[in-house]
Each structure stands twice: as C-alpha cells, then as structure tokens.
C-alpha cells in the first residue's frame, strides 16, 4: 500500500468514528430549530423551542436542581475524598489495602445497585425524598472517584516534604495547607471535575432517590420520553452541548499556552 492510500484509509476511519459520535448530536441540534413537533419532517427554521424552554418551569427547575446537586455534592465529595485519601495514605499497608478494596467496591458495582440500596436506606430511616437525599446519594458515589484521583498524587509526593515543612516551623495544619495541598492540587481538581460531571450526568441513582419534587434533568427527560421527546429538550441539549464544548476549548487552549510557557522556562533554565 502506498503512503497516500494509507493516509486516505486512516482519514476515512477517523471520519467514520467522528460521524458515529457527532452525527446524532448534529441531528439533535438541527431538530431543535425545526418548526414542527414531529421528529420526522423538516418544517422550516424556528427558535421558538428555545423561547419555550425559557418558559417551561419544570425543565428549568430540573436544570436548577441538577446544578445545585452537582455543585454541592462535588464540593463535599472533594473535601471528604481528599481527607480520606490523606488518611488512607498514612495507614499501614494492610489497612490501606483493606480500605482501598472497600473504596473500589461502589465504583465496580452497577449503579443500579447503589441506587436501589440508597433508596431502601432512606425509606428505612423514613427520610423523605428531596434534593437532600439526591445530594447525599451523589456525595456517596462521588467520594471514591475523588479518593482514586488524589491518592496517586499523594503517593508521588516526596514523603519528607511534610517533615521538611514542620522542620521549618510549620504546625501540622500549616504543613498540610502550605506544602501538601499545592502538591496534590492537580489530583484534587481532577477529582472535583470527575465528581461534577458524574453528578450532572447521573440518572440511575438519582432516579431512585429523587422522588417527585427533586427531579434532576436526566430524570425529567427520561420521564418525558415515555410520552414523547419535546423539542424543548432538543433545545436544552443543544445548549448544554455548546456550553460543554466551549469549556473544553477554553481549557485546552489554556493547557497549550501553559505548555508553551513551560517550554520557554525550560529553555531559559
């Protein structure tokens, strides 16, 4: 095979993969501007679904719920998970392995198991389903992800850094804040982002613990699809997609700029 053919096949391959991933989204975005409730036919361009969306209270409430749950649960999970990781790292080997197995368990087990068991737990203790139960559930399934992303950073850290800080006059708390925290920050941030996206995305667990009043967006959309997907959902999904895309582009550009700076610094050094 010549080089040219080779690059043609690989381009074709990339094109097909991209098409599989993004065609559905493209179709969805197009239909969000379709002036008809039916999914089958194109009846002209309109933005009325976007206008309707801003008036649809149940969707807006669900969006608001989702954001509140995502923010609170990911922040709390990050705090708990980081503290847990620090504790686990300080343990002796046998205990550490034991705890890590318990940490992996919720990650490995199907979400539906988590959902059902959390629901039973709340019912058993007579807790009414509300935003509170959703947040507690999300914290629960997010903590392991934070632990798993912070622990490697702790392991990479020079174990004498903490002692060096104390040697230079830091109390243990100061040593943690001034030396350990900056070292493991990348792990904490990626743990937070994972927790945040998982929380935004979660359907399985939220479905069991949200009840009538505290529906998150995925739960609401699912309940709507049982009748018919409203074009407003298309509009909302399109907006979410564009927002996520923008965030991704900004962070990537940032990374590229940082890398360039580092290279410059490296040359100077």
């Amino acid at each position: 095979m010549t080089k040219k053919q080779n690059s043609f096949t690989s381009n074709l391959y990339i094109f097909i993969v991209m098409a599989f991933m993004y065609l559905p989204i493209l179709v969805m975005i197009i239909y969000s501007f379709n002036d008809s409730k039916s999914r089958g036919a194109w009846a002209g361009f309109t933005t009325k679904w976007y206008a309707d969306l801003l008036q649809n209270e149940s969707i807006l409430t669900a969006l608001w719920n989702t954001l509140i749950v995502a923010v609170i649960s990911s922040v709390v999970a990050t705090l708990l998970g980081t503290a847990a990781a620090v504790g686990i790292q300080a343990m002796k080997k046998r205990n550490r392995e034991l705890i890590m197995n318990f940490t992996y368990l919720p990650v490995m087990s199907p979400e539906i198991v988590m959902g059902v068991s959390l629901m039973l737990l709340f019912v058993m203790f007579g807790v009414d389903f509300s935003l509170f139960t959703v947040i507690v559930a999300h914290i629960t399934f997010n903590v392991p992800y934070v632990i798993l992303s912070v622990l490697p950073k702790l392991r990479q850290m020079d174990k004498y850094l903490f002692e060096a800080a104390m040697d230079l006059g830091c109390t243990p708390l100061q040593a943690f804040m001034k030396v350990m925290l900056p070292e493991i920050m990348p792990g904490i941030i990626s743990g937070f982002l994972i927790a945040f996206t998982f929380s935004l995305d979660d359907f399985n667990i939220s479905y069991f613990v949200s009840g009538e009043r505290a529906q998150t967006l995925p739960v609401l959309i699912y309940s709507m699809t049982r009748k018919r997907v409203s074009p407003e959902i298309n509009a909302l999904s399109a907006i979410i997609f564009v927002v996520v895309l923008t965030v991704l582009i900004i962070t990537n550009l940032n990374d590229v700029r940082k890398e360039k700076q580092l290279q410059k610094g490296g040359r100077r050094g």
Partner: peptide, 20 residues
Amino acid sequence: VPPYKRNVNTVFQRYALFPH
C-alpha cells in the same frame, strides 16, 4: 517538643525542596 518548636533545622537526604 514538636519539630516546629525546636531550634534545629534539617537538610534531608533527598533535599525535600518544595517543588511548587
């Protein structure tokens, strides 16, 4: 007396400089 209250400083084996 904890390390941070001792008038003693240490040069660690692998330096333990703060990378950040």
